[in-house]
């Protein structure tokens, strides 16, 4: 066992830059907003998992749909039962890459505008998606921010006509994550 861990250590030590390139969080935040003249609905999830590999220029998110919380308990119930069917599709995920991957210097504070392209999976439907955002380096710490729009029809989420005036067709999504080196 000791030899094994020693070996592993050596292996790791041989790629010293590697672990510095991978950053992760377990408590990122994703919120969405549906705005209609009848009702505004917002859901917040503070347990977003996300990982960035700077070397490869890749990023991924995973979130449990039941982790979104709402202003009203009934909204949350309907969100899970009627729209997202979260027992059948418990997770939403994104995996993609930075399109304009420039070098990000972790030693220098700064904000790097990025564009991300990849596969977004919600409600069991995977869709090619792109969004703009920024990576922020502050005192060696990495965080990400993005805001984009989603059309709920794209993900095969049915809204019955009775409530269609209360639920926007296009939803505003914001993402905020602060990463730790992995």
């Amino acid at each position: 066992m000791k030899t094994l861990s020693g070996l592993l250590f050596l292996l790791l030590a041989a790629f010293p830059s590697f672990s510095q390139d991978v950053f992760m969080t377990r408590n990122g935040k994703i919120s969405f907003f549906s705005r209609t003249p009848m009702e505004n609905i917002d859901g917040v999830n503070n347990e977003v998992l996300s990982v960035i590999d700077l070397k490869k220029g890749e990023i991924a998110f995973a979130v449990l749909v039941k982790g979104f919380h709402f202003e009203k308990a009934l909204m949350e119930e309907h969100f899970n039962e009627n729209y997202m069917e979260s027992t059948k599709f418990p997770k939403a995920t994104f995996n993609g890459k930075f399109v304009n991957a420039g070098t990000i210097d972790l030693k220098k504070d700064g904000t790097y505008p990025v564009q991300v392209e990849g596969d977004l999976t919600i409600h069991g439907i995977t869709k090619k998606t792109s969004a703009t955002g920024e990576l922020i380096v502050q005192q060696g710490k990495l965080s990400s921010k993005s805001a984009f729009k989603l059309t709920i029809k794209d993900f095969n989420i049915a809204v019955p006509s009775v409530v269609s005036e209360k639920i926007a067709e296009v939803i505003d999504v914001t993402v905020e994550c602060s990463y730790q080196p992995k």
């Binding site: 590697f18 990982v51 995973a62 995996n95």
Partner: peptide, 22 residues
Amino acid sequence: FSLLLLVASSTAYGQDLLNLLD
């Protein structure tokens, strides 16, 4: 996990990262 990353070759963009999150 670092090893896992190292070993697995990337198929789709960020697929390894997704596996890691799973």
